[in-house]
Design a binder for these strands. Sequence first.
DNA 1: ATATATCATTTGGTATACTAAAAAATGACA
DNA 2: TGTCATTTTTTAGTATACCAAATGATATAT
Lengths: 217, 217
Amino acid sequence: MTVALGDAHTPLTKMVKDALRQRILNAEFETGARLVEGRISEEMGVSRMPVREALRELAAEGLVKIIPRRGATVSMPAPDQKMELIEVRATLESLNAKLAAKRKDPERIAELQRVLAAGENAIEEGDFSQISAHNDAFHTALGQVSGNATLQDLIRTLRDQTAMLFKQDDPVKVSKSWQEHADILRAVIAGDEELAALLAARHVYNSVDTPEATDEV
Amino acid sequence: MTVALGDAHTPLTKMVKDALRQRILNAEFETGARLVEGRISEEMGVSRMPVREALRELAAEGLVKIIPRRGATVSMPAPDQKMELIEVRATLESLNAKLAAKRKDPERIAELQRVLAAGENAIEEGDFSQISAHNDAFHTALGQVSGNATLQDLIRTLRDQTAMLFKQDDPVKVSKSWQEHADILRAVIAGDEELAALLAARHVYNSVDTPEATDEV
DNA sequence: ATATATCATTTGGTATACTAAAAAATGACA
DNA sequence: TGTCATTTTTTAGTATACCAAATGATATAT
């Protein structure tokens, strides 16, 4: 019984789950890789149960695929399923922006503007290390404005599921992306629901990491 | 160790999950009721583990709420959360209809028409016992036409979560509802994406079981 | 050499046992 | 009589144990 992640007071399942999610999203486990309960539990120094539960929960989120009596693997969405995910995600992000534009709660908007500025700053200074954190922050803040918590949960899940499709490493694309954030924000502030919705949807499609940079569609 | 649901070959977790879902949706457990692992496992004649997993899965679907060290309860969405759910569901059903109208695969459409006719028949004959089954069939078939499996999963989950808001017992409403189904289908067949989307969204809002029949909003 | 049958190993499903947190009950004191 | 401390009971979290299904390996027969 190696002590590694064990002890500590928060539910083990949660810790295991977070650790696994991290490693999956970091591509530390490649898609399709088997996630054997026993091996992971041993490695993390916990029993199989928390691992098992964590895997189930990740499966519910779509990051992991479980086949009865076969075990868990890192799920690899088929190409057409990727499109499906993006389609759904675009729709929900669109709704999110629309709701935000409808409510445009001043306080939250101010917060949103701070986050936006922080992100733009980072880019100007060429600091791309925190980009995905800034990205998260912006989208979270936007979610706060829209005020639909249920929607936020769904979007977060979809974001995780599609994370690997949005590898942001090209500086040009990143700054383009933040330009779009600013545009969305402007539409929200103006209360232009339709424009905000449109821009948000387009933002998702634009952010997809296409193998080669094709501008035409 | 009472034999009740035990033995049988499909994973126990699934059986327990389905049984619990059933009972929750049938309001056999009222919202807010505690779902104690030990009690349920005893009652169903299985060990706590499958029950535990089933509860977790139901929690992921939103039917159950779990608080660490406190256990599970039948989740009762707050009034404003209900609106959130409906808003999201309407949006996704709308996307679904839109995609269906875009693809309008002839075979699937034929199937859809059969389901629609069956439902209309049942209503004409005054057979309301199978209404929710017909409803499910129609929406499932429509999902087949749209072809986005990911979307179907999400919609199904949302449908379960909002099931209690759509108690269909008023015959007048039921037949109205099927009228709307027909309208949606017509739009899909015509390939009119926008109309299909609009009607589907409206259909969700119209189907909400308002305590008293207020036509104005 | 190939195919099939048998066996061993791995691994997931389920049960049981133990621990510790939280809730309920009890009792002491003001 | 009400409030607080203490004990008891309940219940969720975790670990371990066992079984059975699935997979891979080996041997045997054709």
